[in-house]
């Protein structure tokens, strides 16, 4: 059974402030699911139900839309998301070594979350920072020209 979720009041406020900028409520669906992750752990079925009601979109369509976008977490994730680019320009400048080092230091594989629930490690497509490849992000912060030696310091920066 789906556990129902109360949307965070800040999220409701965020949505209400933006509705007048669009001709339909539904237009805010993707931004709302993105913003929801600031207040809720992930896009759980209950959260999607609540968003469906708020934006007047069928629940099944909210789930369909959420499942399309990689930045919308459909499963529980760690407190910090580590995204490493594995696309071509980063590959050419050694991202594979960076990713291997991350797996080693975090003690989990790509796609997994560390045992203490602190980090989820994923590889992602081009982050539009190929001029400073290889690159990675921890949450909203971009790290450029990353070397395996820098990994410990970068991870330590996340509280």
């Amino acid at each position: 059974m789906t556990v129902s979720v109360q949307l965070h009041p800040e999220l409701r406020k965020w949505v209400e402030e933006r509705l007048s900028r669009y001709p339909t409520r539904r237009s805010l669906l993707v931004p709302t699911l993105m913003q929801a992750q600031k207040y809720h752990d992930y896009a759980s079925p209950g959260l999607m139900q609540a968003v469906a009601a708020l934006l007047d979109v069928p629940e099944s369509e909210v789930m369909s839309v959420a499942s399309f976008y990689t930045l919308i977490a459909k499963h529980p994730v760690g407190r910090h998301i580590v995204q490493v680019c594995h696309n071509v320009s980063c590959y050419l400048r050694g991202c594979d070594e960076v990713i291997a080092q991350l797996e080693e230091r975090l003690g989990c594989k790509v796609g997994e979350t560390t045992e203490d629930g602190k980090f989820t490690l994923i590889t992602v497509e081009c982050l539009a920072a190929c001029g400073s490849a290889p690159v990675m992000m921890v949450d909203e912060k971009l790290y450029e020209n990353v070397t395996p030696e820098q990994i410990d310091r970068i991870l330590a920066e996340a509280d």
Binding site: S27, L29, M34, L55, Y69, T70, I72
Partner: peptide
């Protein structure tokens, strides 16, 4: 005229102009 920043959510195809519109309307890209 007005300006609004609209966020995507991680999808290359949403850069294709008509997929971008579908995404903006609240759909899969």
């Amino acid at each position: 005229t007005h300006l609004t920043v609209h966020t995507g959510a991680g999808s290359y195809e949403c850069g294709e102009e008509t997929a971008l519109l579908t995404s903006m309307e609240g759909g899969r890209g």
